[in-house]
Design a protein around this nucleic acid. Structure first.
Lengths: 296, 296
DNA sequence: ATGACTATATGAATTCTGTGCATTAACGAG
DNA sequence: CTCGTTAATGCACAGAATTCATATAGTCAT
């Protein structure tokens, strides 16, 4: 089995560097006899002479030169590894895996992530959107570290932090009769084409909190992946979409878009970040939550 | 100081591979508690959790994944190193440094080295020709492992083996009056141009064994590095040269050359290979000497 | 739920390796 | 030759690694 250890390479390198066991011992915090015993053992375990005893100094043999080259190549990698691990230990390095259960939040997330990456140059961010057992399950399975969700499910071991509120509104185009309406009622959507993200309707607030309570369904539903395309369609009168008010406002600089309140009182949503309690000592994770919760 | 050892990487790799401490223990010839204690120690020494305890199995953390990648990268290099060292130990690998104190022997050496390199694919051959303290000194200083020389100097610790005999002759061109002579005497060279290798005349046998005893010097001496050019010059009547008979014969197929015996009895030389007695257990070195000594 | 099975964790005892001390041996410079 | 320096050696000890025995925990089938 393997007998050559990192410590042996260190000794070989240091002895070659200092040229004497005594000096090398000083640097390694070992006594000269300790090294003498060590190198003898290495040599007989490997069955190779590593040094030629020349007078009172040690000169590397061919095999020794070869080992020295190996040491010079491998030891820096060990050192690097240890400094990396220290960063892991201090929570300075890692991958923050963020799960999303809220399609339109993607735009918001982007705005949070960019400055965060600046602050934590050694932390990578990974965003995932599909979960076999739901976002909460993904948190428990350790598939993700942070969950962006509008539905905090308070379970032991998990914690949720509210990060921002927004109002869900109906986005309509410039030709739409509702464009200047104070608000819209469910029955006003029976003849509309509703554009949504491609997820089950029980995960769309426009259904669960607006249409279904009134027993209404829109004439047609179109599913579109990306927010940009969705709003282009809306601006051209190909349908209407339920989105956060701030998102519609943002896109309004590019396309002509109007926001209409959903119902008399409007629909207000709150977004939470969920995380495992066991992760609370991870510095970069805690900072992400604090940073995200502070108003941008 | 460094705490991460090769053995730790081995454990990480093996546990990841087998998925359980018990199984990994079998492969490493260790018991399960041994591993359990080891990994706990590694973790607390590094200050990083490497595994997450999930149910009754161990799952790598981010830091653990990182270490596994390191292990997969470094461990093969350790394995390779050990197999190389085994080859060193068995004398199958190394560099045979050959020193030359005999210029014309270079041609002979080439003929010996080619088949030798075939027989020892892992042994490299290095030929050196300049020595600060002479060839014998170079042997003692470990600058070379084998010395090709016509002057064996029997000293304790060194051994010399005769490898071949040759006759030193005078090479002349087709227009030369001596071309068919039975032999040549020193005084017949007073008006000649003598072509030699660029070394001090005390190292040229034509001087020490032929001209100087008779108190004769040639009209002119030209120094030329390479045997080829030397013999081209001779063939064109630009001078004469003292070289081994077999060498002249070999070149006679390319240029018109004639060999003339030096003195009535001729000059016979013997070439030896010198080596350190301490090197006699190096397999590839002993084989080189045996191989060189056997008639080609 | 319960029990059988299998995995890891733990603690104490033991074995072994590594280290240091004291000393010897070898070398080199003055 | 002698002194200063360096490596080698033998012995003794401390601490680390390993094992054994056992506790604890999770999984699966009934």
């Amino acid at each position: 089995m393997g007998v050559l250890e990192r410590s042996h390479l260190t000794i070989i390198q240091e002895v070659a560097r200092e040229g004497s066991l005594t000096a090398a011992g000083m640097r390694l915090n070992l006594t000269q006899p300790a090294l003498s015993h060590s190198i003898r053992k290495i040599e007989q375990q490997l069955g190779v002479k590593i040094w030629r005893r020349e007078g009172r100094s040690l000169v590397l043999t061919q095999a020794g030169e070869w080992l020295l080259a190996l040491a010079n190549r491998l030891l820096p990698q060990f050192d690097l590894a240890e400094s990396r691990l220290e960063q892991f230990a201090n929570g300075e390095r890692g991958t923050l895996r963020i799960g999303m259960e809220c399609h339109p939040c993607y735009q918001w997330l982007l705005k949070v992530v960019s400055p965060y990456l600046e602050r934590w140059p050694k932390v990578d961010v990974d965003v995932r959107q599909k979960f076999q057992f739901g976002g909460i399950g993904a948190l428990f399975n350790n598939e993700i570290d942070i969950l962006v969700t509008p539905d905090p499910l308070y379970k032991p071991g998990l914690k949720f932090t509210p990060v921002f509120d927004y109002e869900l509104v109906l986005a309509v185009g410039p030709e739409h009769p509702l464009r200047n309406a104070k608000f819209v009622l469910p029955e006003q959507l029976v003849d509309e084409t509703l554009i949504t993200y491609p997820v089950p309707s029980e995960r769309l607030d426009i259904y669960t909190q607006f249409l279904q309570p009134a027993g209404i369904a829109p004439r047609q539903q179109k599913q579109i992946e990306t927010t940009d395309i969705m709003l282009v369609m809306v601006a051209h009168g190909r349908g209407v979409a339920a989105l956060p008010r701030w998102l519609v406002k943002e896109y309004a600089s590019h396309f002509e878009l109007y926001s209409v309140k959903l119902g008399k009182k409007g629909i207000t949503k709150q977004i939470f970040l969920g995380h495992r309690e066991t992760d609370e000592d991870i510095h970069y994770l805690r900072d992400f939550i604090e940073f995200a919760a502070s108003p941008q």
